[in-house]
């Protein structure tokens, strides 16, 4: 899965489901878009759909430290590569 593909899907989700307006890849999600832990949990469900498998407890906990869209993309890439090994 290419980073550009993931980025496109994540931006669509953030704009359609989380009501983000013109999000920047390095915006602080909490401060600039009011993205909180409930949003993060909802986003995890969307990430599982993108990846096509369920995340483990440790992977979910790790997601709670995400601060920017670039962090989300890094997070998905790392997990996808770990699961493909």
């Amino acid at each position: 899965m290419q980073r550009e593909d993931i980025k496109r899907q994540i931006l669509t989700i953030l704009e359609d489901s989380f009501e983000f307006e013109n999000p920047g890849l390095n915006d602080n999600l909490r401060d600039e878009h009011g993205f909180d832990s409930i949003d993060a949990i909802e986003l995890l469900g969307e990430i599982e759909k993108i990846l096509g498998f369920s995340l483990t407890r440790a992977e979910k906990e790790k997601a709670m430290t995400i601060r920017t869209i670039n962090d989300i993309l890094d997070y998905i890439e790392v997990i996808a590569s770990e699961h493909s090994r």
Partner: peptide, 15 residues
């Protein structure tokens, strides 16, 4: 809030 010790509890309950 997602205090470190209770992060997964919150995730589980919301899910």
């Amino acid at each position: 809030s997602t205090d470190k010790k209770f992060t997964f509890l919150m995730i589980k309950q919301v899910e």
